[in-house]
Simulated scan of single mutants.
Amino acid sequence: MSQPPLSPCVGICTLDRTNNTCIGCGRLLSEIAAWSRMSNEERSNVCQLAAARLDQQRRTNK
């Protein structure tokens, strides 16, 4: 059995109020709240989405 994905939390728990996205990890508030109830597959998907959000945010802020 594979290990569950680790939380992408980096300890910078601050929400961008415009889109309810954590500026530290890129997760939506709803994803953070549901994390403990997600399957490994759902967690992996959230990690990928969060990383894509952070990449987009970095490109936008340049």
Rank of each mutant, 00 (worst) to 15 (best):
G24D: 07
A34N: 03
I32N: 00
L15S: 08
E31C: 05
S7V: 05
N20G: 01
E31N: 00
R53T: 14
N20P: 01
R43D: 09
P4Y: 14
C25M: 09
N45Y: 11
I12G: 00
L6K: 14
A33C: 03
S36R: 03
A51D: 15
L15D: 01
L15K: 06
T14N: 10
P4C: 13
C22V: 08
A51T: 12
M38T: 07
A52K: 12
P8G: 10
L15H: 00
L29Y: 13
D55R: 15
G11Q: 13
M38G: 04
S2D: 12
S2L: 14
R53E: 06
C22A: 06
R59Y: 12
D16E: 15
E31S: 01
E41G: 10
N20Q: 08
Q48T: 14
T18V: 08
R43Y: 11
A33K: 08
I32H: 00
Q57K: 08
T60Y: 13
S36C: 05
M38E: 09
L49Y: 11
N20R: 12
S30M: 02
N19V: 09
T18P: 04
P5I: 03
C13H: 07
R37F: 14
A52H: 15
S30P: 01
N20I: 01
I32T: 11
M38Y: 14
G11S: 08
C13A: 04
E31P: 05
T21Q: 08
R17P: 10
I12E: 09
Q48P: 06
A33G: 04
C13K: 04
S36M: 03
M38R: 08
L6F: 11
V10C: 09
C25E: 00
G11I: 11
S2Y: 11
A50H: 10
D16M: 11
R58H: 11
Q57P: 00
V10K: 13
I23A: 01
N61V: 07
S30K: 13
Q48R: 15
C25Q: 05
L28C: 06
S7N: 06
D55T: 15
T21Y: 01
E31V: 01
T14S: 12
Q48G: 08
A52V: 14
M1P: 12
C13D: 04
